[in-house]
Design a protein around this nucleic acid. Structure first.
Lengths: 252, 252
DNA sequence: GCTTGACCCTCACGTAGCGGCAGGCGGGAG
DNA sequence: CTCCCGCCTGCCGCTACGTGAGGGTCAAGC
């Protein structure tokens, strides 16, 4: 079977210009031409094109692809292994970036302003292993995440204002309670912890008691979130953490 | 504090040329110049640079970064969501390619020749959901995979020849047994299934009984592997599948 | 046989995000 | 005063094509 450029382009999902380019640089020259100078591609050309596109998708520069394909002594298994490694590295990098973005999104819900430094830390010397563990511990429940993002995407400015008002009201009440000297495991504190859980459930994602305690622990473990609550009132981060745990235990 | 281009370049880990370029396109112009025309960057410039690099790392084109940073009304959350989606898509794509490569690696162990079509299928209209489920069912045990790859990477040509000889010997014996009319759940068939499991364990990765039955099912479910065994002897794929299951049950 | 429209050809310049030079000035140390 | 390092402004080069311009070709319909 013989194909014209246009046919090949459609088959392979590339533009004609791309095929011209590959011909120009000698990466993929059609096996023949018609008398009028039209390019004619045969099945072998198609196979080669598929290989080319495969390597291209893996991020190889075209020149290198030429070398790989044209080298008859090349070990295909070695290429596969190499590709696999490359992909793994890229996946890891992407995963880190996704984590960074999710962190930024979560932080923005609490109106925490990330400093450029913080935004930037994903590029720093952060140990990927540690980062991974941290991420899993923090946003392990990806379903909740997606759910949250779905909801948030539909919020209007008004919704945000109402959420903020609600949040601030809750904040004033828990600060007052803490100031009154009521212990963190008092019924009143637990009620406010429960309210906190329901605010999250209503606005972001279905928050279980277990997930709630995980969140509470993060408020203490991560200084950014600690700072957020400590900024409202000193001692609030620990107070809230304890109240959430007490609430989770008593309702379980 | 004021910094020269060179200092900023070292601090931020970019080249001087990059800073010149950002100045040229108006993405990041230093807040001042010395009388001699030297660029002078201050702390605010550094902050802006970090933001720029952050968005750049996330894959935004420079022009868009300019718009994002310079537009005070822009919704950063919307950008984050968008970028999160983009990254997710890219991750999915990479994951599919990893799966395809792992498939190719597994196939090459059995000396199955993949056609370019098959190599190419990752670009096709394969339903990602289905693909994902298939991949999980197939190579769920990633540890086994890594282990296998580690070992295989050290094999010499001699190792491969010995493995092949061993494999072919086993093949001849199971074909003979099947031809003799012995049922697939006979002790002899189960012994050969067990031997099959041990060959895998010895050469590739620690193969549990459970993993072995999973593999056996794949031999029937995936036509490429089915074809491999059917090519040795008609009916062998089903016969081996049954023998492996019988063996797993009896040894459990 | 002729037109029409879809297809093909070859230049050839434009794009992003810089890399890397040339040719020339500035600035602090010895 | 010299030396060398750092800075400056062009400006051309690179990859992997996109996007025309200007013109030939092919199959179908009239």
């Amino acid at each position: 079977m013989a194909y014209t450029v246009g046919q090949v382009a459609k088959l392979a999902g590339v533009t004609i210009r791309t095929l011209h380019h590959y011909d120009e640089i000698g990466l993929l020259s059609p096996s023949g031409r018609t008398s009028a100078g039209y390019r004619r591609y045969d099945d072998a050309d198609l196979q080669r094109l598929q290989l080319v596109l495969y390597y291209r998708e893996l991020g190889f520069p075209l020149e290198e692809i030429t070398a790989i394909i044209d080298d008859p002594a090349a070990d295909p298994a070695a290429h596969l292994r190499r590709q696999h490694e490359l992909l793994t590295v890229r996946m890891k990098r992407l995963q880190e970036m996704v984590t960074a973005i999710e962190f930024a999104m979560e932080a923005s819900k609490l109106n925490i302003q990330l400093t450029p430094q913080e935004r930037f830390e994903v590029f720093g010397d952060v140990d990927p292993e540690e980062h991974q563990a941290e991420a899993e511990q923090r946003w392990g429940d990806t379903d909740a995440y997606r759910e949250s993002n779905r909801r948030v995407a539909r919020y209007t400015k008004d919704d945000w204002l109402r959420h903020r008002a609600e949040n601030e009201d809750w904040g004033r009440r828990i600060v007052a309670l803490m100031a009154s000297g009521a212990p963190a495991d008092s019924p009143e504190a637990m009620d406010l912890a429960e309210e906190h859980r329901q605010i999250i459930s209503r606005w972001f994602y279905e928050c279980s008691y277990e997930g709630h305690t995980g969140l509470a622990d993060m408020y203490l473990a991560d200084e950014r979130f600690t700072a957020y609550y400590e900024n409202i009132a000193p001692g609030l981060a620990a107070y809230l953490n304890e109240a959430i745990h007490a609430n989770a235990i008593s309702r379980a």
